[in-house]
């Protein structure tokens, strides 16, 4: 269960660190790193406004999406300890339960009858469909490399195998996971949380009409997603055999570095033109294919 605690802890700090990095990089004074948490508090204090167009779906969607993300977090192992729930093929469940959450956030957006939110919903559905293969190809490579099919078994066996290539391998894995995480959590270059403008981009435009409690839930969900993907990245870099305390320290370090990296990336990188996104996303899948080919070579199936 320590994993869950760490994920929650990361989710708590993560958005603040990104915000802080962006402020420093752009030369602004900016708020402290707890600002996102303070925002959440404000949202929880506020009442809600619902459009008469919306119905039950709009009201339940944020809750179900958050619950799906929480369920996904139960499958993440930590520092060699198995996840609270782990079974063969749990990553399939992981991807599909996240898709379940996404399904609800999409139809929640469509429920408002707004063309903005319709656009956001459409983009979310479209782009997440294009990124999905990358995740599965990567995990196919992992499964083939280690011979296991669950997160809790795959990561501990990363460095156990006799191969010296494991390092290259985990770097590719890490790179891909970062890319997938950026798309899943709606950051630059595919999406832009600041949203200026391309008609308000993807994730932000989907939640235009949410307010109060529901909006807080949506934000919590996004923060959790960061932490979940952050711990996947951690798991793919740090060997599970190391001492627990060292791993915990490294975990925090990696999360902080990940957050700062996102902040820097968003400060200095332009986001993609919207109609170039499909190409970009398919390229990520193509890179995942390279990971697969590398695995074929390592496992001596190729050459």
């Amino acid at each position: 269960m320590t994993g869950i605690v760490f994920i929650l802890l990361t989710a708590f700090f993560f958005p603040g660190i990104i915000l802080r990095t962006k402020n420093i990089a752009s030369g602004r004074k900016g708020p402290g790193i707890f600002q996102p948490m303070k925002d959440l508090r404000v949202l929880l204090k506020k009442g809600s406004i619902f459009s008469p167009t919306t119905g039950i779906i709009f009201r339940i969607a944020p809750s179900i999406t958050l619950s799906a993300i929480l369920c996904a977090s139960l499958l993440i192992p930590f520092a060699g300890n198995a996840a609270p729930l782990s079974f063969e093929g749990d990553f399939i469940f992981f991807a599909y339960i996240l898709a379940m959450g996404r399904f609800f956030s999409i139809i929640g957006a469509l429920d408002t009858g707004s063309s903005f939110e319709g656009m956001g919903a459409n983009r979310e559905a479209f782009f997440s469909m294009l990124i999905e293969p990358a995740f599965f190809i990567l995990l196919a490579a992992f499964a083939m490399f280690t011979g296991y099919t669950s997160f809790s078994d795959i990561f501990p066996h990363f460095y156990v195998s006799e191969s010296d290539y494991a390092l290259i391998y985990s770097i590719i894995g890490c790179f891909l996971l970062v890319q997938i995480a950026m798309v899943e959590t709606s950051r630059v270059p595919v999406d832009d949380p600041k949203t200026h403008l391309e008609l308000t981009m993807i994730h932000e435009v989907m939640i235009l009409d949410n307010s109060g409690f529901d909006k807080a839930l949506i934000h919590i969900g996004t923060y959790l997603k960061f932490a979940i993907f952050g711990s996947l990245i951690f798991n793919s870099i740090v060997p599970a055999g190391w001492h627990f305390l060292l791993q915990s320290a490294l975990f925090m370090l990696i999360q902080v570095v990940f957050a700062i990296a996102i902040g820097l990336l968003e400060s200095f990188r332009a986001r993609n033109k919207m109609n170039k996104n499909p190409k970009y996303l398919l390229t990520i899948s193509a890179i995942a294919m390279i990971a697969f080919v590398v695995t074929l070579i390592i496992t001596k199936k190729l050459m």
């Binding site: 929880l44 506020k46 009442g47 809600s48 406004i49 619902f50 459009s51 008469p52 167009t53 919306t54 339940i60 809750s63 179900i64 958050l66 619950s67 408002t112 009858g113 707004s114 903005f116 235009l208 009409d209 109060g212 409690f213 529901d214 839930l217």
Partner: peptide, 23 residues
């Protein structure tokens, strides 16, 4: 999901819930 929805239900009871047009 049920728990979160219940929490939401009781939370919204204590807050002001209004109607307003879609943005």
């Amino acid at each position: 999901s049920a728990l979160i929805l219940l929490t939401r239900h009781f939370h919204l009871k204590t807050k002001k819930v209004e109607e307003g047009p879609t943005w």
